[in-house]
């Protein structure tokens, strides 16, 4: 991982999350139908393993909690690995918009793919292209990549692998 160690505060929040997840898993497993009506062996109850894993995660979360409280009292270790929030939000928004919003929701796959690749390449390269005065060239490269990707992926998956594209 490319970053500093997460802070004890972040670990503290995570430990509470894990404790909650462990408790929920245990509750889910424990209250799960034990299929007694089907006279199955009680040791094969479907909730057994999730409940045990829930206990495991709960205990590990509690150890993380104790450790983060101890570290928080003594030192501050640093922050989580840093990323540009703007670029991350843009990447996540574009990817999710394409995969969950466009694919299978109306526009043909090739069009959705070409639009995504074109917009994503241009959006992320825009500052660099603008600084170097290469906007026209950069737009042409993005368009070529978009058309090439859409054509190649559609051709390979639809014609070669016989996948019914979304």
């Amino acid at each position: 991982m490319n970053g500093a160690r997460p802070s004890a505060t972040a670990d503290l929040v995570w430990s509470l999350f894990w404790i909650a997840v462990g408790a929920a898993m245990f509750a889910g497993g424990f209250t799960m139908d034990r299929l007694q009506g089907q006279h199955i062996n009680p040791y094969t109850a479907p909730g057994l393993v999730p409940a045990l894993l829930g206990i495991g995660i709960f205990v590990l979360g509690a150890i993380l909690l104790a450790r983060s409280v101890r570290h928080r009292a003594s030192t501050h270790v640093g922050g989580a690995a840093q990323a540009s929030a703007g670029r991350l939000a843009l990447a996540a928004a574009l990817c999710i918009a394409y995969a969950a919003g466009l694919v299978g929701r109306g526009p043909p796959f090739w069009l959705a793919t070409a639009a995504f690749v074109f917009v994503a390449i241009l959006a992320f390269r825009w500052p660099e292209l603008k600084a170097r005065g290469e906007l026209a060239k950069g737009t042409a490269v993005a368009a070529a990549c978009a058309i090439g990707t859409a054509a190649a992926v559609t051709l390979v998956f639809q014609e070669l692998f016989l996948v019914r594209l979304p």
Binding site: L94, C95, Y98, A99, V103, F109, T113, F116, V117, A120, I121, F124, R125, V141, A142, C145, T149, V153, F157, F161, V163, L165, P166
Partner: peptide
């Protein structure tokens, strides 16, 4: 530039999972 490669990789992630 990885800004050119990554959107194409993501398209493969989507279509690969779907296929």
């Amino acid at each position: 530039s990885r800004e050119i490669i990554m959107p194409i990789v993501f398209v493969l992630c989507v279509i690969g999972s779907y296929a």
